[in-house]
């Protein structure tokens, strides 16, 4: 083996660097959180109390908030990113389509803290004065809107801003997928006399795995998002089915409690336990989403 070739094998070490870091973090979070699971068992997940004076730690409000805000963000981002995909890919004339696409891409580079700043200051106040009061006044028989919205800081706001922040990412994913579909499928559809909406139906069914993957990947990102949520959710430690109520997510709670958790016995493991759950779910969704995409790509190009 010549010198250059041997040197190449040295690359193996730094290549494993990223994997090593991931493993280290996983191990760290698992080991610190273990005592919480062992000591508290199921009550860690079902209790709604966070009370250091009595050493009672329950994660339910944080878990509920995390799931709810992520689901809301999916509801927001999916139809919108699909629409943008059709607009950019098919409906809009070339020039407009390029502008639109570029705009979406640019928005994707925006830091989430700016979404949080705008969401917490501007959007939350707007929604409170208009949408929320309406929702409660007319739809309060639905448990989702049964509580009176006392401010713009609640689960719904957090979920909506979260969803808005993911529009660029999800749209780009879908547009790339749309472009990967061999044009002959679409041309055939039109030559058979399909109307646009019927072709779109065809496209959607072809893209189903990609759509699911995009939902998974968006969900994975939403679960761990911190700054947006901390600025819009109201930070109330309550597990409520009502979307108009303030709430909390695991990441936002970590922002509030992490630095002080070191001096309260039991608090740090409990916090880490929440982190572990979110992380595992996030990694799982991310992994599955990526696998789905590569499988779909394989099918499409085949």
């Amino acid at each position: 083996m010549r010198k250059g070739d041997r040197a190449f094998y040295l690359l193996l070490v730094p290549s494993l660097f990223s994997s090593a870091i991931l493993m280290l973090i996983l191990i760290h979070v698992t080991t610190v959180s273990l005592p919480a699971f062992v000591d508290r068992g199921l009550s860690l997940l079902t209790s709604v109390m966070w009370s250091p004076p009595t050493q009672d730690y329950g994660l339910l409000p944080a878990l509920v908030g995390t799931i709810l805000t992520s689901l809301i963000s999916i509801v927001v981002v999916t139809p919108i990113s699909l629409s943008i995909m059709f607009l950019v890919g098919d409906l809009l004339p070339r020039g407009l389509s390029r502008v639109f696409h570029r705009l979406v891409e640019v928005m994707g580079a925006l830091p989430t803290v700016i979404y949080g700043l705008w969401g917490g200051f501007t959007l939350s106040r707007f929604l409170h004065g208009t949408v929320y009061t309406w929702l409660h006044d007319y739809l309060s028989y639905i448990p989702l809107f049964s509580c009176r919205p006392l401010s713009g800081q609640n689960i719904l706001t957090a979920g909506v801003v979260l969803g808005i922040s993911m529009i660029p990412y999800a749209s780009s994913l879908l547009i790339e997928g749309y472009r990967a579909i061999p044009s002959r499928y679409i041309e055939t559809a039109y030559s058979l006399g399909f109307y646009r909406f019927e072709t779109y139906g065809l496209v959607t069914s072809i893209m189903k795995p990609l759509l699911i993957a995009s939902i998974m990947l968006s969900m994975s990102r939403a679960l761990g998002e911190t700054t947006i949520v901390a600025l819009t959710i109201g930070n109330a430690y309550v597990a409520s089915p009502c979307l108009l109520s303030p709430g909390i997510t695991v990441s936002a709670w970590i922002v509030s409690q992490f630095e002080s958790a070191f001096i309260y016995p039991g608090a740090l493991p409990a916090l880490y336990a929440g982190a572990l759950l979110v992380m595992v779910l996030s990694l799982l969704l991310s992994f599955l989403g990526i696998m789905l995409i590569s499988k779909w790509r394989g099918v499409i190009y085949g």
Binding site: D56, Q153, A236, Y237, V238, C242, S256
Partner: peptide
């Protein structure tokens, strides 16, 4: 049991509580 640096706020359970980070966050809210 309701005295401490961090407590389990009954008002949160009722749904009329908001949490602010720091005196700054509370004042802002």
């Amino acid at each position: 049991d309701l005295v401490g640096f961090t407590i389990d706020w009954p008002i949160d359970r009722i749904g009329r509580g908001l949490g602010g980070k720091g005196n700054e966050g509370v004042a802002k809210l």
